[in-house]
Design a protein around this nucleic acid. Structure first.
Lengths: 221, 221
DNA sequence: TTTATTTTTTAGGTTAATCTAAAAAATATT
DNA sequence: AATATTTTTTAGATTAACCTAAAAAATAAA
C-alpha cells in the first residue's frame, strides 16, 4: 500500500514514543513531536488505523500494529544508516547529520538500503550510539546505562547519547566527549548531582546532571 | 523562497524541454513529461510565474527565468551526482539508477552536495555521459554527435546516450555497448539506415537506426 | 460524587496539487 | 475570410494534510 512521507513520520514518532513506555500513546504526545495540533493527529490516527498500521480507539490512545512496527523500523534503519554514511563517508560532524537524515530516510529502494549497509561495513550503531535495526527489523537491545545512574569511582565507556539535538552534541564535542571516550567518575556533588569526570585520563572536568542524564555508557569490568 | 518537490519537478521538465529548442515551451509538452493534464499545468505555470521562476503569458508558452534556470540546474546537478554515486560507489548498473536519483535529487543540503561532489572526485559526467553542472550552474557543453549522423568508415568513442530509459540501457548492455567503447562503423544499410558496427574490435554487429540515434559519440582523430 | 480541568474529538474551513468538462483563444483548412 | 480543429484556459470538484473553535469524553479536584 502506498505511504506518504507524512504517514511515515507519524509512524516513526509513534514508534519513538512507544520505546519509552508500554502504555498506549496519547494524541497530545504525538502532536507535540509532530509539531502539529491534536485535531490533525486525530484525523491521521484514524487514517493510519484504516490502513492497518496502528491500533486506535478514540480517547484510548494509539499503538503500532505489527505492520506499522515493521514500517517504522525500516525508517529508523534507513535514518541511522544514512547518518553513518554522512559521518563516515561525507565527513560531517555528529551534530550536523540529523536534518539531512530526516530527508534521506524516506528514499524508497530496498536494494539501495542493502547496498548502503554493505558499503558501510554493516554498522551496528549510528554516530550517536543508537542501534541500527537489521533487515528483518530486529533491533539489537544494547541496554546501556545513563551516566547519571552510575556511582562515583566507576570507570565506563561512552556508548551513546539519549538525544540528538545539535546544541547538546556540540556541547559534548566541546567537552571532548565522543563515542568510545573513557570516563572515570571522580566525584558526584550532592548539591546539584553534578559530576566531576576525567575523560580519557585527562584533568577532571565538570558535567551537569542534565548532561549526565543524556549520556549512555557501559561500565568497565 | 520555499519550493515543493512538485515545483522542482516542473522546473526540471521545463529545463529539459528548453534544451532541445529556443522556442517557448507549450503547456501540452510540459503536461506530457509531467504525466499530468494540461489544466493542471496551467495552474502550476501561473504559480511558478508568481514566484518569479518562469516567464509565462497565457496562450504564449513558458520559459525559465534566470532564477528558475538556476534552480533547475541545481536539481540536474544533484540528480547526476547521485547517479554517479549509485553506480560508482553502490555498484548499481547504469539502467537501474534513474528512479532512485529522481528521489535523491530533492534532498536539500548544499553542504552535502559539495561533499558528495568531492567524494566522487568531481566527476564531469554522469553514468550516461550527461554533463554535470558545476556549483555555479554552468553546464560544460560537450557537443557530442549522434552515431546516426556519422559516416561509414569512421571510428569513434561512445561518450553518452540521448535517453535514460531502462529498456534502452539494458539493450546497450546486452550489445556490449558501454561508455568509452570504441565503435568502428563498417557499413550503413541504405534500406533502413541500420548500422554494422564493430565494438572494441570484435566481430561487427547489427544496430538499428533507432539505437544509433540515441548513442552519442566523439569521432577519433 | 459533583464540579472543574484537561484531553480528545467533531465540525467546518484552508491550501496545494490534481482532475473533468466546458469555454475561449490560437492555428489550420477549406 | 469563414469554418473546423487543436490547444489552452477557466470553472468547479476532489484529496491529503493541515487549521480553529466548539463539543464531548476522560480525568482530577473539591
Amino acid at each position: 500500500m502506498a505511504i506518504s512521507f507524512t504517514e511515515e513520520n507519524y509512524l516513526k514518532v509513534i514508534h519513538r514514543l512507544s520505546e519509552a513506555t508500554s502504555e498506549d500513546i496519547s494524541t497530545n504526545a504525538v502532536a507535540e513531536l509532530m509539531q502539529t495540533k491534536a485535531a490533525s493527529v486525530t484525523d491521521m490516527l484514524r487514517k493510519l488505523a484504516d490502513k492497518g498500521w496502528v491500533n486506535y480507539q478514540k480517547y484510548q490512545g494509539v499503538r503500532l500494529s505489527p505492520a506499522g512496527e515493521k514500517i517504522a523500523l525500516s525508517i529508523v534503519r534507513k535514518h541511522r544508516l544514512w547518518e553513518v554514511f554522512l559521518v563516515d563517508k561525507m565527513g560531517f560532524n555528529w551534530d550536523e547529520v540529523h536534518e539531512i537524515a530526516e530527508q534521506l530516510e524516506h528514499i524508497e529502494s530496498d536494494e539501495l538500503v542493502q547496498k548502503l549497509d554493505a558499503y558501510l561495513g554493516f554498522p551496528k550503531t549510528d554516530p550517536h550510539g543508537d542501534p541500527i535495526p537489521n533487515k528483518e527489523g530486529i533491533l539489537p537491545e544494547l541496554a546501556y546505562l545513563h551516566l547519571s545512574d552510575i556511582k562515583a569511582g566507576k570507570n565506563c565507556i561512552l556508548m551513546g547519547v539519549a538525544q540528538d539535538s545539535a546544541v547538546f552534541l556540540q556541547l559534548l564535542t566541546k567537552l571532548n566527549l565522543s563515542l568510545g571516550a573513557k570516563l572515570a567518575i571522580m566525584e558526584i556533588n550532592e548539591f546539584d548531582r553534578s559530576f566531576f569526570v576525567s575523560i580519557n585520563d585527562a584533568e577532571p572536568i565538570f558535567i551537569s546532571h542534565e548532561v549526565a542524564k543524556n549520556i549512555l555508557v557501559k561500565i568497565l569490568a
